[in-house]
């Protein structure tokens, strides 16, 4: 279970950090406004500052929130069940390429996680990379990542 308060605090910290990074980074670009025009860093600096201040405000308000649940334990399990395989899929792309990764990802989620019938899972898992290949690589000539594995095998 994650409380609303924890969620609010996390988000405000996240946006606040982003704001601070923008402020620091834009000072390098110069933050002047003169007859020679407006410097490159001026607007990013201002927007960063606004993000930072508003985030602090949100942080304060988040602190006052009660500890009621924003994401229940079962929701959290569902979320992780959806996001974790997806993140693994994305992480695996540089290694084994989109085609192998997407097939494994589908097969894994359908057959293992959701206990979908194996033949049907296999069918979808095989059809997805084939469809991707036909539409992207053949039809629209977008070369999708084949991964380090393909390089080793010499594709």
């Amino acid at each position: 279970m994650i409380s609303r308060r924890a969620l609010e605090l996390t988000t405000a910290t996240l946006t606040g950090t982003f704001g601070a990074a923008v402020v620091i980074s834009s000072i390098e670009n110069g933050i002047g406004w003169s007859t020679a025009g407006v410097d490159a860093g001026t607007f990013p600096f201002l927007t960063g500052l606004i993000v930072l201040v508003a985030s602090l405000w949100n942080l304060g308000r988040g602190w006052l929130e009660n500890g009621a649940a924003a994401v229940s334990s079962s929701d959290l399990r569902h979320l992780i069940a959806l996001f974790a395989p997806a993140a693994v899929f994305v992480a695996a792309i540089p290694l084994i390429g989109v085609y192998v990764a997407s097939g494994c990802y589908i097969l894994g989620t359908l057959a293992l996680l959701h206990r979908f019938s194996l033949p049907r899972s296999l069918l979808i898992a095989a059809a997805t990379p084939v469809a991707l290949y036909l539409v992207f690589e053949r039809m629209f000539q977008v070369s999708l990542p084949h991964g380090a594995l393909a390089d080793v095998l010499g594709f």
Binding site: T15, F18, G19, P44, T47, G48, I50, V51, A54
Partner: peptide, 10 residues
Amino acid sequence: TVVSLAAGFA
């Protein structure tokens, strides 16, 4: 809203 808008600009 302000966070959202300003972050978008950044």
